Amino acid sequence: MDQENVSATLTIAAPAASVFAVLADPATHAAIDGTGWVQEAVDRAPLTGTGQIFRMAMYHADHPNGDYQVANKVQVLDPPRAISWLTGQEKEDGRLEFGGWFWRYDLAPLGPSETEVTLTYDWSAVPQSVREYLRFPPFEPDHLINSLHHLAGLVSGR
């Protein structure tokens, strides 16, 4: 694959601020994801600024430990237009190391009660050493649109 990012777009019947509030709440991320990999928020505080770290409990059958944690670093926080984070891990010495991929949501209001949401997964900064043992993207093609449908369900349920 020559492309180093994938994206999907969905119109959600809710104001951008409502959609953004769900995205800025790490406790909703497992329900948005839908793969079963994201288990729960370890750090449950709302996302309020760039540079903020939030950890998530994860599970993947192909991971050496099965259960593990990721440390995400907020890269973009522009309410209610955009939110993005880098995914990495905390090393034994407490240092954070990021793998070179990020998640980004761009929100475009289409009126007072509709928002076009684009979800992008980008792995363009992943070093070759990581690409030798991880496949990118690590999910099926329909994962992003499914996640957006999960997000729409969460927003409408609030």
Rank of each mutant, 00 (worst) to 15 (best):
Q89W: 08
G99L: 14
T118N: 01
I145E: 11
V117Y: 04
G99M: 15
N146W: 09
D67H: 14
A108V: 15
E140R: 13
S84A: 15
V155H: 01
F54P: 09
A41I: 06
T11A: 09
R135M: 12
H143S: 05
Q3L: 12
P137Y: 02
D106G: 09
F136S: 00
S147L: 04
S7V: 00
S156C: 06
Q39N: 08
P79H: 06
G49Y: 05
G34Q: 07
G36F: 03
R158P: 03
T28S: 15
H29L: 10
G36H: 06
K91P: 00
G157R: 15
R158V: 11
D78C: 01
P109A: 10
E92A: 15
T118K: 07
V126Q: 05
V117C: 07
G49M: 11
A61N: 10
D33S: 06
E90F: 02
E90H: 04
G94I: 07
A21E: 13
I145V: 15
L119G: 00
A14L: 01
Y133K: 09
G88R: 09
P109R: 02
V76C: 04
V126G: 02
D142Q: 12
Y68K: 01
H143P: 05
G94P: 09
L10Y: 02
V19R: 07
A82S: 11
T48N: 08
L134Q: 12
E114C: 08
S129N: 12
Q3A: 11
E97T: 13
I145Q: 05
H63Q: 11
A14S: 13
T120R: 05
V70I: 11
E97H: 14
Y133V: 13
G153L: 04
S147H: 00
G99W: 15
P141H: 09
T11Q: 04
N72C: 07
L86R: 11
K73V: 02
T118W: 03
F136Y: 15
M1F: 11
A13S: 12
L10I: 01
T48G: 11
P46R: 14
P26M: 08
A152N: 01
P141D: 14
L86A: 12
M58C: 11
F102C: 07
A31Q: 12
P26T: 03
I32H: 01
W37P: 02
S156R: 14
D33Y: 04
N5W: 09
T120C: 07
Q89N: 09
G49V: 02
E97G: 13
P112F: 06
L134F: 13
H143C: 06
T87W: 00
F136P: 06
L119V: 07
W103T: 14
V6P: 03
Q39C: 05
A8V: 05
P64H: 10
I53T: 10
V155Y: 02
H149L: 10
D106I: 11
D93L: 08
Y68R: 00
A125M: 14
N65P: 00
P141W: 07
A31K: 12
D62P: 02
V6T: 12
R95Y: 10
